[in-house]
Structure formats: structure tokens, C-alpha cells
Simulated scan of single mutants.
Amino acid sequence: MSQNPLVRVYQRKSKSPWEDASTFLLLADIANENTLELSFGRYIYLHKDAGGRMLGVSVSRSIQEDLECSQYIEANSMQLVLSHYSQDISEFCEKFPAEFEAVFGLPPDVYLLVAAAYWS
């Protein structure tokens, strides 16, 4: 089984304020549409613990400036960020349907339609 490019499992402690074991990339810039090469001028990572529980998100400096928020946002406060970027997140994740479904159990369009209604 090939490695999921959207998932990063930590080999050592992360710099985040949480006891996280992995992240899932919800948003990044696409540097090359043909190869889906990513660039990270703008990103949102979902942080999860070893049991898969969502702990919060970390965001790029450009998103911090756009929303006037901190880099790390707790799970109970992350809806604002996710709601604001829901269309961008959806468009990004739909470029990786198999990788997304392997983690969330549903295709990105279905999952994110429901999630966006919750985030609003």
C-alpha cells in the first residue's frame, strides 16, 4: 500500500501544543496541476491524536494574517477557519479522492458537504 500524501504520521514529537500523532492536509496550494505538486504558502493541517481524535488545526502565516488568528487553533474553535475556507478545502480535497476516502470513509464531496453545513 502506498503512503497517503495528505497524511503525515509523526516520527517524533511535533511542535504543536497538542499530543498529536499525525496530521491530515486539508488545504495547500497546487504548484503544478498536472503532477499535483504542492506548495505551502497557504495551508491548513488537521491534527489528530493516536486514537484519531481531532485536536485542532494549524494554519499558514498567510491564513493567520487573513483571519487574524494564531497558528494553532483548538478543535472547539476551528469551525470559523474551516467555514471560511470550506470551498477551497473542498476543491483541494477533491483532487485527492482516494486518499481522502481512505482516511474519512467517504468521498470528499459527500463528506465536505455535510461538514461545511456543520462548520457554518
Rank of each mutant, 00 (worst) to 15 (best):
P107M: 09
L112D: 02
L80V: 11
I89L: 07
H84W: 05
G41N: 14
K48I: 01
S16C: 02
I30R: 05
L46N: 02
K95N: 11
S22C: 10
L80Y: 13
A117Y: 09
P107L: 08
I89R: 00
Q3W: 02
L38E: 08
N34K: 15
G52T: 08
V9T: 15
P108F: 01
K95H: 08
R53T: 13
N32M: 05
I30S: 03
Y118C: 06
K15T: 11
Y118R: 14
A117C: 10
V103M: 08
L38P: 08
L67D: 03
H84R: 13
A21Q: 06
G56Y: 04
D29H: 04
L113T: 15
I30A: 01
T35M: 00
S120L: 07
E37M: 11
A75I: 06
F96H: 06
V57S: 03
Y45G: 03
A115R: 13
L27F: 09
S2V: 10
F40R: 05
Y72K: 01
E91Q: 14
W18A: 01
F24Q: 10
S90I: 01
F100D: 08
P107V: 10
G52C: 02
E91I: 05
S83K: 12
Q64V: 05
S86A: 13
H47M: 10
S14H: 07
W18I: 00
P107R: 13
C93S: 10
Y43D: 02
L106R: 11
R53H: 14
P5K: 12
L36T: 01
L26F: 13
K15Y: 11
A98R: 15
K15M: 06
H47C: 06
Q64M: 15
S14I: 08
D20I: 06
S86H: 10
P108G: 00
S60N: 03
F96D: 11
F104S: 04
N32A: 03
M1S: 15
H84E: 15
A102D: 01
S77W: 13
C69T: 15
P107N: 08
W119Y: 11
L46T: 05
A115Y: 06
P17W: 10
L112S: 04
D49H: 00
M78W: 01
Y72H: 13
Y43L: 05
E74A: 15
S58G: 11
L26I: 07
L25T: 14
W18P: 01
D66M: 11
Q64L: 04
Y111A: 08
D29E: 15
S62L: 07
Q3Y: 05
A117K: 15
A116F: 07
R42D: 02
Y43R: 01
A50V: 08
A75E: 15
R53A: 11
L25H: 00
V110R: 10
D29M: 09
S58N: 06
E94C: 14
V114D: 12
D66Y: 12
S2T: 14
H47I: 00
L25P: 04
E99H: 06
S77Q: 15
Q87A: 14
V81I: 15
A98E: 10
R61E: 15
I30H: 03
A115I: 03
T23I: 09
I44P: 02
G56D: 09
S70M: 10
K48T: 07
P108R: 06
D66S: 13
F100H: 02
S83E: 12
R12F: 09
K48V: 07
L67H: 02
Q71H: 14
Y10T: 00
F40D: 05
V57C: 08
E91S: 10
Q64D: 08
L106D: 14
Y118D: 14
S120N: 13
Q64Y: 02
